[in-house]
């Protein structure tokens, strides 16, 4: 199915039925190249294809739907404006877009804001349909196959946990220490050693 043949309806059900589960990387690269050439229809199609996946990333990190919506909006404005800088030889399109969403989400979390995390936050959190599994479950699922899986297994449990918590919740070192009830130095060491080992292992496997 040609991506351009689809019309954007904004209706959840229709999109879910019509769209292929994961559009090929090539297809997304092609759409990004056309976005760089200011092709608005390509941009709409790109949004259709990738927004649900990217929104999930934003929700996971910000843990508030309203913030995640802001983040997704920011991210797509960036994607449109910087599409010309995307280089398909250097990174997969989904990796490139996910990094943009993650970075906007992390910036958003680190932004000093007036509204602190409070009951309202908790309430909104509760409104997130949490069929989404916790970080450990996610780690397990995403790691059922692949090299990252093999390498993650070589980490200690604490290293694994601190890395996945940081990745999925955007927690800083300090927040991680608090969350895991461990001294800051300990958490930092877990992360550093865990990442070192991951890199060594993945490099060995040729990633």
């Amino acid at each position: 199915m040609q991506p351009g043949c689809l019309t954007f309806t904004g209706k959840k059900a229709k999109i879910a039925v019509n769209l292929p589960e994961t559009p090929a990387s090539e297809q997304l690269s092609d759409l990004l190249a056309r976005c760089a050439l200011r092709d608005q229809r390509a941009f709409a199609t790109l949004y259709q294809f990738s927004s649900a996946k990217l929104f999930a990333v934003a929700v996971r990190i910000t843990r508030r739907r309203d913030w995640a919506e802001e983040v997704l909006q920011e991210a797509f404005v960036n994607i449109w404006n910087h599409a010309a800088g995307y280089n398909s030889a250097k990174s997969a399109p989904m990796t490139w877009m996910t990094a943009i969403v993650r970075n906007r989400a992390l910036d958003w979390l680190r932004k000093p804001r007036e509204v602190e995390i409070d009951e309202e936050h908790e309430e909104l959190m509760a409104s997130i349909p949490d069929e989404s599994p916790g970080p450990e479950e996610l780690l397990r699922r995403s790691l059922e196959a692949g090299e990252l899986a093999e390498c993650m297994k070589t980490l200690t449990e604490d290293q694994q946990r601190s890395i996945t918590l940081a990745f999925f919740y955007g927690l800083s070192h300090g927040e991680l220490a608090e969350q895991m009830r461990k001294p800051l130095g300990t958490v930092k060491t877990w992360i550093r050693r865990g990442l070192d080992r991951l890199k060594g292992c993945l490099d060995e496997l040729g990633r």
């Binding site: 990333v57 997969a92 990796t95 995403s142 990745f167 993945l202 990633r207």
Partner: peptide, 8 residues
């Protein structure tokens, strides 16, 4: 980014 992307 490429190394950790399988996580998402």
């Amino acid at each position: 980014e490429a190394r950790l992307s399988p996580l998402t």
